[in-house]
Each structure stands twice: as structure tokens, then as C-alpha cells.
């Protein structure tokens, strides 16, 4: 490490790159490389974004997206963690169910979307179902393996400390599984957002995805709005991811991976 690698210089370099990307975008638009009928200029997009931010329709769309995502995540994750824990604790159940779950995990979640659309139409339920269904399988698997992944030394230690039953579960099993569940949750949050947007785009449920689609269909004049919505979706993604990473850091501060991160940051 030398001075170039630390502190303000790094921040400056990052800001510089962001500025360069934005400037490059604008330059390409002005020079006519980017056709304004399909890719509006940076300034037009930003102006539109500013205008949209004062529009209540936009906030309604954001709310719809966040609501569908949050509900689906809540239902899917609660079920996955509960069922995963129960399955993980029983060897017979685990061995029996794992082939089914492993198979269903490889099935593209999106396959179920048309069915959900037929059953529920362009509704919040459809969205919530897709998200819940999509996050359930990977998180259930994570939980099962997490519950079963108690370090052998830890298992021996628990035995010599005579930890049994519920106390063993809370003292040893759950903390051992926590890193697996946390990783699963972080992935679930990101996947859930993607599925929410897809459900809105394909299924026509209200939200940012639908806003993007309608603004595209409204013709070239509305294109800056499309890009403004896309940027906003990205911001939502950043917020969601950051929130989950922060939560993980807090809850798993004792875990090796987090310790390493802390050491790196120091």
C-alpha cells in the first residue's frame, strides 16, 4: 500500500470515473453516435429523472415494487427458514427431500410465471407468489445445509458440554447455520427484486417494471423517462443490497468472513 492506494485519492479516482462515464454518455449523444430516438442523452435523462422525482405516480410505482418484493420475500423466507430448519434437523427427512429440492432449484423460476399470471392476473398476489416461490428453494437449501453444517469440533464440544435439545439448538445449531442463512437471504433479496421487476414487465403488475414498459411503448418522446426509471431501479437495487450487507455485518460480526472484511477496511 502506498499513498496512491488510500483515502481521498481512491475516492477521487472513483468520482472521476463516474464523472467520465456520465460525460462520455453526453458526448456520444451530442456527437450523434447514440441515436436519440433509442438512447436519449445524459442531460435529458437526468432532467427527466429530476422531474419524475416530484411526481407522485413515480413514488406509487416504487411503493408497488417495494411492497411486492417485501411481502414475497417475507413469506418465502419465513417458510424457507422454518421448513429448512425442520428438514435439516432430521436425517431421514433431509435425505428424502433433498433430491426434490435440488431438482426444483435447477428449474428456472420463471417457468412458473405464466401459470401465476393465468391464475392471478396482473395483481400483487401474482407478484408476491413469484417472489416467494423464487426465493424459497435456494434459501431452504441454504438453511438445510446450514443447520447440518455444524463443525465437527463444535459438535464434539457441544457434546462434552452436555448441550442438548433446545439449548443446543440456540447455542450451537442456529449460530452455525446463521452464515449460510445470511448468504441465502442476501441472494434472496437480490433475486427477489429481479423477479419483482420481471413479474411487472411480463405480468403487467403495477410497479417500476411496468412503468419502464409503458414509457417505452409510449414512443421516443418518453424514452428519457424509461432511462430515468432504469436508473431508479438501479438505485433501489443498491439500497436493498447495501441494507442486507449491513445487516449481515451486524449480525455476523463474529464470523471469519466479516472479521476479514473489518480487517481489510481498517
Amino acid at each position: 500500500m502506498n499513498a496512491v492506494d488510500t483515502g481521498w485519492f481512491r475516492t477521487l479516482a472513483r468520482l472521476g470515473v463516474i464523472a467520465a462515464v456520465l460525460a462520455g454518455w453526453q458526448l456520444l449523444s451530442v456527437a450523434g453516435v447514440l441515436d436519440s430516438s433509442s438512447f436519449p442523452s445524459m442531460t435529458a435523462t437526468m432532467a427527466e429523472l429530476g422531474r419524475q422525482l416530484t411526481d407522485s405516480d413515480l413514488w406509487l410505482a416504487v411503493w408497488e415494487t417495494v411492497r411486492g418484493w417485501g411481502l414475497g420475500l417475507l413469506i418465502g423466507c419465513s417458510l424457507a427458514i422454518t421448513i429448512g430448519t425442520l428438514l435439516g434437523l432430521n436425517r431421514f427427512a433431509y435425505l428424502s427431500v433433498i433430491p426434490v429440492i435440488e431438482f426444483l432449484k435447477t428449474v428456472p423460476v420463471i417457468a412458473i410465471l405464466p401459470l401465476a399470471i393465468v391464475v392471478w392476473g396482473a395483481t400483487l398476489e401474482m407478484k408476491v407468489f413469484l417472489v416467494a416461490f423464487g426465493v424459497f428453494w435456494p434459501l431452504a437449501i441454504q438453511t438445510i445445509y446450514g443447520v447440518r453444517a455444524v463443525d465437527p469440533v463444535v459438535r464434539d464440544t457441544a457434546a462434552v458440554l452436555r448441550l442438548r435439545g433446545f439449548r443446543k439448538f440456540t447455542t450451537v445449531t442456529l449460530p452455525s447455520a446463521a452464515p449460510f442463512i445470511a448468504t441465502g437471504l442476501r441472494v434472496a433479496a437480490a433475486v427477489g427484486l429481479i423477479l419483482t421487476i420481471i413479474a411487472e414487465l411480463v405480468g403487467g403488475a403495477r410497479g417500476l417494471g411496468l412503468s419502464i414498459l409503458t414509457s417505452v411503448n409510449a414512443g421516443p418522446d418518453r424514452l428519457p423517462a424509461t432511462y430515468a426509471f432504469i436508473l431508479l431501479t438501479g438505485v433501489t437495487g443498491v439500497l436493498v443490497t447495501t441494507a442486507f450487507v449491513a445487516l449481515e455485518q451486524r449480525l455476523l460480526h463474529w464470523h471469519e468472513s466479516q472479521r476479514n472484511l473489518a480487517a481489510k477496511a481498517a
Binding site: 463443525d151 469440533v153 448441550l163 447455542t171 449460530p175
Partner: peptide, 29 residues
């Protein structure tokens, strides 16, 4: 009435518990 100390302390001590709480486990039991 028997206790065991393992070689690998980094794994045998529960990293998610503080030192006090680690020592408290057999007392709680």
C-alpha cells in the same frame, strides 16, 4: 463430572459468544 479440552481452540470456543458467555455455557447446563 468430566470435561474435555480440545487441541483446536479456535473451533472449540464458540466464536459467536463472548469469553464470559462461552464460560457460562456449562454453568447454564
Amino acid at each position: 463430572r468430566l470435561s474435555v479440552v480440545f487441541q483446536d481452540y479456535s473451533r472449540s470456543l464458540f466464536p459467536w459468544l463472548t469469553v464470559s458467555k462461552n464460560v457460562a455455557v456449562p454453568l447454564k447446563v
